[in-house]
Design a binder for these strands. Structure first.
Ligand SMILES: [Mn+2]
Ligand SMILES: [Mn+2]
Ligand SMILES: [Mn+2]
Ligand SMILES: [Mn+2]
Lengths: 225, 225
DNA sequence: ATATATATTTAGGCTTACCTAAATTATTAT
DNA sequence: ATAATAATTTAGGTAAGCCTAAATATATAT
């Protein structure tokens, strides 16, 4: 009943959710960039979603958009689909974490609620996707996430990789080669003051690694006191 | 590389394949009925597919359409997707044979070749879908099918249900209740000359059943000599 | 405060895939 | 062979979702 939303609209809502998780409104330019769509087209879609019968976004010219309660629910439904599918591709079909995103990007719009429930049940209701991202519950609550950017750690601190905020296959493959996979334990050796390059010793690895902000801002960890 | 065909076009090609399996061309009206689309719209699409850069159908006004080699390959690709998905929903997610069709109808357009290969491999390259329909091979050859309509049997003949040509959930559920499932063994008791109602004794069932042409024309069997 | 640069919106178009109503062919029955 | 019926095509439209170019509003730097 809830879903007569097109694939396109579902993608817009999903991206708006991600861009507004920090509390601020999402700009049209940011949306356009994430969706690979011209800014003018985004404006048109935002006007449409804002004046839909039950509005999906709140939109004020030049001020960006936020989701209405309704829009948020729709977004979480798509995100739940996406992350469950990713988890399931890895668990039952042997996909690796860098291969699942594109497949899930299409399947998220194609599965039924029945299918969603069946894979969730088959996997024992997993809480996170293969990248460590939390999976919204069936009643569409996004679990709180207490992870912290790796970039925020100080020398001597120890932590465990909890979550990686990325979808590019090459980037993910690179993280894997570095040993920055979910659950990996590490100790920060030092941080260069000028370029923020961080030297890290991963447990079970001989050599320490050096990673820049492009990586440390996307890897989230749990500090192990 | 092969697939820039829209979901819509894929559905048209699939239905054309099914309507031309008997050798004759497919009429626009028949296509329109199967696709739940107005006949005028079908005409438009046929003109488009016929004059596409590599033509997908051969079309002459008022004469109906047939598939070109290219169109046939595209159709078989979709049918392979559809049937593999159906098999896999049943085998790995516990769907019943009457629930899979609608789910597969959407997923068939959403999965990658990679996904196709992975589920085929995970199931050990099955030859038939849950309704007994043959699954085209990875190189898009449709297996020959030597089944015969149940309606063609004569009294005293024994046979085994090989395949059911149907997708309506209610109809399939009814067949299941009757005991007309894939692999069921039976003996024809008699056939009423006027309404073609057939009396059948299924192995392992107490009571014989009586079924009309709406059923006997859609159930295909293998005669067990 | 003004000029410049950036972000956003408006205007006008395009493609895909539908639709309905009217015209045209084909088919069938007399 | 006609006339009536059925199938098919043509003509003219619509709604989604995009796009580009031009106009406008906002933010930034001096
Ligand atoms: Mn992901
Ligand atoms: Mn998507
Ligand atoms: Mn089927
Ligand atoms: Mn389909």
């Amino acid at each position: 009943m809830a879903d007569s939303l097109t694939d396109s609209i579902q993608d817009y809502l999903k991206v708006i959710y991600e861009l507004t998780e920090n509390g601020s409104a999402a700009s049209n330019t940011a949306l356009a960039a994430r969706l690979h769509i011209a800014p003018a087209s985004v404006t048109g879609m935002m006007q449409k979603l804002a004046s839909a019968k039950p509005a999906l976004v709140e939109y004020r010219k030049h001020q960006g958009v936020t989701l209405t309660a309704r829009g948020k629910r729709a977004a979480l439904e798509v995100i739940r689909h996406h992350r469950l599918i990713e988890a399931w591709l890895v668990q039952t079909l042997g996909y690796s974490w860098d291969e699942v995103h594109n497949e899930a990007e299409k399947l998220e719009h194609a599965i039924s609620e029945e299918f969603e429930e069946r894979i969730a049940s088959a996997m024992g209701y997993p809480l996170r996707d293969p990248h460590g991202e939390p999976i919204p519950s069936a009643d569409l609550i996004m679990p709180e996430d207490q992870g912290i950017e790796l970039a925020k750690l100080h020398p001597k601190q120890e932590a465990c990789v909890q979550r990686v905020h990325a979808q590019d296959a090459g980037f993910l493959k690179h993280l894997e080669e570095l040993g920055l996979v979910i659950g990996a334990r590490m100790k920060v050796l030092d941080v260069s003051r000028y370029d923020q390059v961080m030297h890290i010793q991963l447990r079970g690895r001989k050599e320490a690694i050096a990673v820049g902000p492009a990586i440390t801002n996307r890897v989230f960890v749990e500090i192990s006191k």
